[in-house]
Amino acid sequence: MSTPSYLIRRVLQAVAVIVIVTIVVFGLLHALPGGPARGILGPQATAQQIARFNHEQGLDQPLPVQYLHYLNQLLHGDLGTSYTLNAPVSRLIGERLPKTLVLTVLSMVIGLLLAIPLGMWQAVRRNRPVDYVITTLSFIAYSTPVYFLGLILILVFSQVLPWFPSQAPQGDSLAQVFSDPQALVLPVAAGAASMVAVFSRYMRAATLENLSEDYVRTARAGGSRSRAILRRHVFRNSLTPVIAMLGYYLPVLFGGALVVEQLFNYPGMGLLFWSAAQASDYPVLLGCVLVISAATVVGTLLADVVQRIIDPRVKAGRA
């Protein structure tokens, strides 16, 4: 399939996915008992006050009407206004999203840079001690709740050994975040750990599969050495399926960011979402989930495009 028509189809699919996301989240928020009024107005609020709040926010209308209204707003780039922070949701998210992206992208890049060589090393040394050791460590990293890992990191590398601050960089601008790179170390490490675990496993499996492919035998028969075969052929062939998995891993990274931001007090989207959840601030909750899902969908799309660049077969629809 030609690239433009492929892109058009993928973008349409992405839009469909995002529409489904809005339905799911909108439905979920409004299906749960309670409603936001009690949370916003406090336990002392009278029935009259609650009714007025619901009327002002349009919450007394039928759900489909509310949904269509929201969708209409969305088409005009309006994510609504926060109940509690008295600011447009789009501005709140606009301030916070870049910081969360810094955290997740850094975790992802550093995680991949560690995971890929580790996975290949394991595959080459399959069933040797180093393979078992890395496998065990991967499983442990994968099995540790992020908040527990973050806590251990703080206790060890901030309290016992005073190497890094226990708080993430503060401040509103990205410049302020990058001015304190020391403070990013522990949050990024906490975010990257399970990434390393998962992707070193993927890379190990992909490399093992490729090592048994016929083309490796052909290269060997042509007089190429193992190391050269690994570098010239196996590496790229193994990387393609691993990149395809990246898009699907983004939600896990964002989920991790939610916890990491709370633990290290990093004022990103996760923290915004956290406080909005405590305050029943529906517009903010909806907006955050929507933006995160959109980021995931875009990430998946990007992973596909990268795969098309690396693997000429995908473009020709042969893979």
């Binding site: 979920l28 928020l29 405590q278 989930v289 995160i292």
Partner: peptide
């Protein structure tokens, strides 16, 4: 898949 599970759990926990 695009909605992180932890986000949903947090929303649910805040409400019920």
């Amino acid at each position: 898949i695009a909605i992180p599970a932890l986000f949903i759990l947090l929303v649910v926990s805040a409400i019920t």
